[in-house]
Design a protein around this nucleic acid. Structure first.
Lengths: 110, 110
DNA sequence: ATATACTATCTTGTTATGCAAGATAGTCTA
DNA sequence: TAGACTATCTTGCATAACAAGATAGTATAT
């Protein structure tokens, strides 16, 4: 899977997964593979910087959970602004995919 | 339109347009807007380097046309290797879009 | 005890590429 | 003689995905 195609879509993917429910970073890696039917994969070294970008932009909020046993987990949830952004990014993706599908000749894309 | 979404798709777009028929660079800029229904746009400063990449890879071939009047035009046509690459890129795009749509279309659940 | 493997977060350096901005040059009209 | 338009091409910048590695706790086996 080409690295370049993923550009600009990972934030959309993360917001979608976190809008479903609160998740922690390491969990998201496997969720992406599962939700995409094995078609998409993202490394954790890619994931964390994206989470920080989203947090700094106010789209998601972290919450540490430190269990008696086990490694601490940092759970993220989507803010109201994050849901707005999710809607915006989704619309942008659909518009882009529709434009590309129109060029490829596929009818009724996105 | 986000710059990042276009990443890795411009070569696919160019090969598609040039597989339709021979075209020159400046013409492709407007063809992209037309074919995409106004949804996609690419600057000429973006286009020419991509054409050189495709030419160097052996996917397209140039042909200068110098009319008695007017600025010379460099027409590109797709090679056999270019058609193979077009098929490969198209499949990759469809796989990626299917994966992302699967994530976007999934409402809750495991 | 120690080695391996797994969970989990985080950082650094590399690389690819789309684009803004500008250079160059010919044509056409006012 | 100026402006707008066609047409190709170059330079430098910003962004983001990733490989690779660091850190650290837990679990199992030998």
């Amino acid at each position: 899977m080409s690295r370049e195609l993923k550009r600009g879509t990972i934030e959309l993917v993360l917001l979608t997964l976190l809008a479903d429910r609160e998740r922690y970073g390491y969990e998201i890696v496997s969720a992406i593979e599962e939700w995409s039917g094995g078609r998409l994969a993202v490394r954790d070294g890619t994931l964390y910087p994206v989470l920080y970008r989203l947090e700094e932009a106010g789209f998601i909020e972290p919450r540490w959970e430190t269990p008696d046993r086990g490694v601490p987990r940092k759970y993220y949830r989507v803010t109201d602004a994050g849901r707005d952004e999710l809607g915006r990014l989704t619309a942008e993706w659909r518009e882009f995919a529709a434009g590309l599908d129109a060029i490829l000749g596929r009818k009724g894309g996105a």
